[in-house]
């Protein structure tokens, strides 16, 4: 009887261990800290560092976009928070936006971040209620970023300079 208990316990324990190994190889964490963060993400207990998030928001409002992005990346190292990813994408948009010229590289990075935000908030459309922003949904931001990366005849329209940054 005891032997049967050992068999069942052994099977359960080793199957759980095997699942953990498969998960580690799938996630490929680079440090022990990333292992912990990924585990939190998988368990649904992951939270961004609110202090760093607020400090990044402050930098963003002062138009220091690169510094803001750095801070947001530190606040959300696992890229697991939709709201933070939305703000990162927004900072790429604002930095890449120009009256006569769009920085394609930055807009592409912004598109990547907004796609990540949409993927993370797949259950419901992502909306950010920030009065300082002119676009509040990830869909709007994505459309704006996509427009910026596309080439068309409207690019040579001189009236383009009258457009405003959102």
């Amino acid at each position: 009887m005891k032997s049967k208990i050992i068999q069942v316990a052994g099977l359960a324990l080793t199957i759980a261990y095997a699942a953990l190994i498969v998960w580690i190889y799938a996630v490929e964490p680079r440090t022990f800290k990333e292992v912990a963060t990924s585990a939190e993400l998988a368990a649904g207990t992951y939270q961004v560092n609110q202090e760093k998030f607020n400090s990044a928001l402050d930098l963003f409002r002062r138009e220091q976009f690169r510094a803001a992005r750095d801070e947001w990346q530190r606040a959300d190292p696992a890229r697991g928070d939709a709201r933070t990813q939305f703000y990162i994408a927004y900072s790429f948009y604002r930095e890449g936006w120009g009256r006569v010229y769009y920085d394609q590289q930055l807009l592409k990075q912004g598109l990547e971040a907004v796609n990540q935000a949409i993927a993370l908030a797949s259950a419901s459309p992502l909306t950010v209620d920030d009065p300082n922003l002119r676009m509040h949904t990830a869909a709007e931001l994505k459309a704006e970023l996509e427009q910026g990366t596309e080439r068309s005849w409207s690019d040579v329209n001189p009236l383009k300079v009258l457009r405003t940054r959102k």
């Binding site: 005891k2 032997s3 050992i6 068999q7 052994g10 324990l13 080793t14 261990y17 190994i21």
Partner: peptide, 24 residues
């Protein structure tokens, strides 16, 4: 009985744990 328990422990817990650690 002890021998049988120890054998079960090696066969069903220790050996798979060893091999899975090698796999990791």
């Amino acid at each position: 009985t002890d021998r049988s328990r120890n054998r079960a422990l090696v066969d069903f817990v220790v050996l798979p744990m060893f091999f899975l650690t090698v796999a990791l």
